[in-house]
Simulated assay, not measured.
Amino acid sequence: MTKTPTDLDATVADLTAQLRAARRAARTARREALLAARQDLGVWLAEAAGADTPEAVARLRDALDPGQLRAAITAAPEPTAGQHDGGADAGY
């Protein structure tokens, strides 16, 4: 059975809405993943530094210079093939 132009327009509109919804969901998932990673990093840093009170966490934050941290991160070379990054799956 052949679809009429009106049916085709409705199908296009429905698929467009589905695509927009999927893109919104993907953006939301990326934002949530980044937020979770940032929170995990903060918890890890506070635990590693022994900052176990709100005051200690505030002192730790004050001690960290964002400019120096940013420079260290951008200056660090990316691991190449065959090198491991020492991440959680390093197998230690």
Rank of each mutant, 00 (worst) to 15 (best):
G86H: 02
G91C: 00
D85P: 01
A75T: 01
R30H: 11
D40N: 10
E55R: 08
T28F: 07
K3H: 07
L69S: 03
G87S: 09
D9C: 10
A72K: 11
A48S: 11
A48Y: 11
I73C: 01
M1R: 07
A88E: 14
A72W: 09
Q18G: 13
R38E: 14
V57C: 11
A33W: 03
D62W: 00
G42Q: 13
A88W: 10
G42F: 02
R38L: 09
R70A: 11
A90H: 12
A21E: 05
P5E: 04
Q39W: 11
D7H: 06
K3T: 05
D65G: 10
D7V: 15
T80C: 14
T53I: 04
A76F: 11
G87A: 03
R20Q: 15
Y92E: 03
A90L: 08
R31L: 03
L60T: 08
R24C: 13
D40I: 02
Q39L: 10
A17Q: 01
V57D: 12
D65C: 08
A49L: 07
P54W: 01
A81Q: 10
E78W: 15
R70H: 08
D85Y: 02
V43L: 13
A26I: 04
R59W: 00
A13G: 00
G42L: 01
Q39P: 06
T16W: 02
P79E: 14
V43G: 09
K3N: 07
A29D: 07
G91R: 06
L34N: 10
P54Q: 04
A71L: 02
P79L: 12
D40Q: 13
A33I: 01
P77M: 06
T80Q: 12
R24L: 13
R59C: 11
A81K: 09
V12G: 10
W44A: 15
G50N: 06
A90Q: 06
V57G: 02
Q68S: 10
Q39Y: 02
L34M: 05
R23W: 07
A49D: 08
G86E: 03
R61T: 07
A13N: 06
G82C: 04
L69C: 01
D9F: 05
D40T: 05
R27S: 06
A49R: 15
E32L: 06
R24M: 08
W44K: 05
A75F: 06
D65V: 03
D85Q: 02
G50I: 03
A72T: 03
A10K: 14
A25Q: 14
A72H: 10
P77V: 08
Q18R: 15
E78F: 14
